[in-house]
Structures are given as structure tokens and as C-alpha cells.
Amino acid sequence: MSGTNGQWPLYEIFVRSKRGLNHVHVGSLRAADDRMALTHARDLYTRRNEGVSIWAMRSDGIAASTPDEKDPFFEPSGDKIYRHPTFYDIPADVPHI
């Protein structure tokens, strides 16, 4: 399968640096298929033991929020300060809270 104008499609690469941590986006690469994306990702992004696991995902399969509507999109969380623990006044002499 190839992307636009015959190029190999673009993949986004996520690497888990060690067990217990999330996969983190490290960059992208072009590959003809999923398998090649993984082997290329290994050669490109883990030449020095940077990872124990790799996810490769076609870039055109990612749904993303747009920066233009950043403010309205995230607005619902902006005014709910009672979601934070510091919203609540607790006397200093109450232990373990």
C-alpha cells in the first residue's frame, strides 16, 4: 500500500523505553508496510537501547484536536477548579490528608 504520489506512507513511532513506562512518541518515518515500519523504527530510533517495545502507526490514522480550536476545545476543564485537591481548605493539624 502506498501513500500519495507513490511514496511509502508516513508512520508515527512510539517507544517504551523500559517496562513500567508509557510508550512515547519519538518521531516518524516512511515505510512500505507495518512490518517494515517496525524494523525501520528499530534501526532509526533504538540504536542505543532506547526501547523495549515499539508501536508504529500510520499517521493518517491519527485523529487530532486542532490548534485553532484549542481554547474552546479544552474550555470544559478550565473552570472546574474544584477538581484539584488544593481547592479544599483543610486545617494543617489534620494528619495524612
Binding site: 504520489n5 511514496q7 508516513l10 518521531g27 516518524s28 532509526l44 540504536r47
Partner: peptide
């Protein structure tokens, strides 16, 4: 060998960065 392979890797990181700006790899 390892060094020259790194240079290839550096080129590829950078081509991907250019692509995020809308540049076309080919």
C-alpha cells in the same frame, strides 16, 4: 560503520521534521 549509520539516522530524523512543515520527502 556505526558512525556512518548514525549520519543516515540523523538525516532521517531531519527529513521527518521537514515533513511536519508540509515538505514532500520525494
Amino acid at each position: 560503520f556505526a558512525k556512518v549509520q548514525d549520519e543516515a539516522g540523523h538525516g532521517l530524523y531531519l527529513y521527518s521534521a521537514a515533513e511536519t512543515l508540509g515538505a514532500d520527502r520525494e
